[in-house]
């Protein structure tokens, strides 16, 4: 028997703002039940929320996978979206391609990806135009290294 891993997958539906934040609240609840330290829960929940919103704003749909290991939590968010042409540019604070109607709802301020990177202890992003984006984040339970 290897180390215990708890993994849960959430489906994300693009464009459906009525469900926005649902997956990340569930991620948060599970992390709390698992007894992950509160500051780590908070960082992971915020990153999960940002990632979830990105999928809802930009993609048709995707998945969020939560994996809890005894020493770290991993979040993998993959979408079948338009992809990001210039990841370096997208990582800059304030850069956004969100349409006006999304910004009017208070989202799309161009802080999503930079926020995720700030929250996570490890942040990897792979994106291909026309195919989609995949973000992998790691949150260490004993705090940032």
């Amino acid at each position: 028997m290897g180390e215990p891993v708890l993994s849960v997958v959430f489906e994300l539906i693009g464009g459906d703002f009525s469900l926005a934040g649902d997956a990340s609240s569930r991620v948060k609840r599970i992390l709390q039940q698992a007894g992950i330290p509160a500051p780590v829960v908070r960082r992971a929940a915020i990153a999960a929320y940002e990632a979830e919103m990105n999928v809802i704003i930009h993609a048709d749909g995707g998945t969020m996978r939560l994996e809890i290991h005894p020493d770290e939590t991993r979040l993998t968010v993959a979408d079948q979206g338009p992809g990001i042409a210039d990841v370096g540019q997208a990582m800059q604070e304030g850069y956004s391609t969100a349409p006006d109607y999304v910004r009017e709802m208070g989202f799309g301020a161009g802080m999503g990806l930079p926020n995720m990177r700030k929250c996570a202890d490890r942040f990897d992003i792979v994106s291909a135009v026309g195919e989609g984006t995949r973000i992998e984040m790691v949150f260490r339970h004993n705090g940032p290294a």
Binding site: Q32, A34, H141
Partner: peptide, 12 residues
Amino acid sequence: LAMDNDIAAAMR
């Protein structure tokens, strides 16, 4: 909120 003091037990 935690189900158990031990993370592995809580996960189970």
